[in-house]
């Protein structure tokens, strides 16, 4: 049984431009797939379409089946039950992912109350637990803090905790580490890796960075201009890219890496 089955997904703007063109991909329970592409390649829109969260004015055609529910054309009510339960998203920008005027604990309580119907003491305990799960120190202090009072890495962990709160079957990570500095990035990737493994969750990991994708997933899909260019194991894509675009991606990643190696060499 497949968890996510996208067939011929096409996303158009109101004025008729095609942003995602006839995209197909499948993901089984517990599987991990990386989506690689430059900005504007339609990878983020694809993730939004999976939850029926496309921005105003954009329309999706084709088929997106998430845990047996057809997302394309589904009513908002239907989508609300699917969101969070079947799939949840972590976004790129930790600054905008949290409401600046709401304490972290209250925000984290929202999905727990909405989806798991927790209240009172149980809700409080669940919030503290969720914060501990993403390895945040002093969960009590963080729960009382406003987003601007904690660091970017901590905010991103809170966002991850919110996404995991309802124990979705699929975690969609849209460039979750791009806005973080390199050392924090590595910790965050390791954290996602462990948490997802413990829960046997499937992951759709979106990034422009091949090296980052390689750390979390073993299979990847390369996108360019709204189309899927090539799909395969990360190892194969790196070693024997078939398409020109994939080759260019790999070469530029290599060039960057060797430049960094040269610099760090004595």
């Amino acid at each position: 049984m497949t968890l996510l089955d996208i067939r011929g997904l096409t996303v158009r703007t109101a004025d008729g431009r095609t942003l995602v063109d006839d995209l197909s991909l499948t993901l089984g329970p517990g599987e991990r797939l990386g989506v690689i592409g430059e900005s504007g390649s339609g990878k983020s829109l694809t993730t939004l379409a999976v939850l029926g969260l496309l921005p105003e004015g954009m329309t999706a055609t084709g088929s997106v089946e998430l845990a047996g529910t057809q997302i394309v054309g589904a009513t908002e009510k239907r989508l609300t039950t699917v969101r969070g339960r079947d799939a949840a998203i972590v976004f790129q920008e930790p600054l905008t992912a949290l409401d600046p005027l709401m304490r972290v604990g209250r925000q984290l309580a929202e999905p727990l109350r909405g989806k798991r119907r927790l209240t009172g003491g149980a809700l409080k305990r669940a919030v503290a637990e969720a914060l501990e799960q993403v390895r945040l120190p002093e969960p009590d202090r963080i729960a009382r803090a406003f987003p601007h009072e904690i660091s970017g890495g901590q905010r991103q962990r809170v966002a991850l905790a919110m996404a995991l709160a309802c124990e979705p079957k699929l975690l969609i990570a849209d460039e979750p580490t791009t806005a973080l500095d390199v050392s924090v990035q590595a910790e965050m990737l390791a954290l996602i890796d462990t948490l997802v493994r413990e829960r046997e969750m499937a992951v759709l990991f979106v990034s422009h960075d091949l090296a980052v994708v390689a750390k979390v997933t073993d299979r990847a899909l390369v996108m360019k201009d709204g189309r899927a260019v090539e799909e395969g194991t990360v190892e194969r894509l790196v070693r024997a890219p078939r398409e020109e675009y994939t080759k260019a991606l790999v070469t530029s990643a290599r060039r960057l890496e060797s430049a960094l190696d040269l610099r760090s060499a004595p």
Binding site: R83, G84, I89, E110, P111
Partner: peptide, 15 residues
């Protein structure tokens, strides 16, 4: 409404 935390709230099933 364009902020990610609104999308996150919708994902959490908040009405």
């Amino acid at each position: 409404l364009a902020q990610d935390y609104i999308t996150a709230a919708r994902t959490s099933g908040t009405s």
